[in-house]
């Protein structure tokens, strides 16, 4: 380890190491306190969704453990959330019915015709394979055919 006043003292690495240590320590603290959100791949992750503290409180209840918190849910807000959820349920039912109706009215699309066509071709093939009549016109009863003779050509 070079001394403090050494000319060769690797100042940059020392500083960087110190800084990284400090940052890591801070991060570990926050993690321990549960202040860091779960990673995006985690199933609890809320990333990309609409964020609402009150909805969280309504669904999960107040966080356990810490004695003092600023996150509270007022009674009025709770009523609002209840009402909204009721409407949302209704809307979902409506869209399901509509989708069902649309599906029933749908005409067979192009993909399906292709598929069907191929199936008909395949059917034709299968029927041709099962048909043994065409090979019946072989003439096996006669003398057969003899070519050449007892010499090497």
């Amino acid at each position: 380890m070079p001394s403090k006043n050494s000319v060769n003292k690797p100042k940059l690495t020392e500083n960087l190491r110190h800084k990284n240590h400090a940052l890591a320590r801070k991060r570990a603290d926050r993690e321990r306190k549960g202040l860091i959100n779960p990673p995006r791949s985690h199933e609890d992750s809320k990333s990309g969704q609409a964020r609402s503290e009150s909805v969280d409180l309504y669904l999960k209840g107040a966080p356990q453990g810490s004695a003092v918190t600023t996150k509270t849910l007022s009674k009025k807000c709770q009523q609002k959330i209840e009402r909204n959820m009721k409407y949302a349920e209704k809307r979902k039912l409506l869209t399901d019915v509509q989708a069902k109706l649309e599906n029933e009215m749908d005409v067979e699309d192009e993909n399906q015709t292709k598929e069907e066509n191929k199936r008909s071709v395949k059917d034709a093939f299968w029927s041709a394979l099962e048909d043994t009549q065409s090979s019946a016109n072989l003439c096996q009863e006669g003398q057969g055919t003899t070519l050449g003779g007892p010499i090497y050509p």
């Binding site: 016109n137 096996q140 057969g144 070519l147 050449g148 007892p150």
Partner: peptide, 16 residues
């Protein structure tokens, strides 16, 4: 290109 000595049980169907 004389054919070698062979015998086939089939023959040409003269009705066709």
């Amino acid at each position: 290109c004389q054919a070698s000595w062979i015998h086939s049980k089939f023959e040409l169907n003269s009705q066709d």
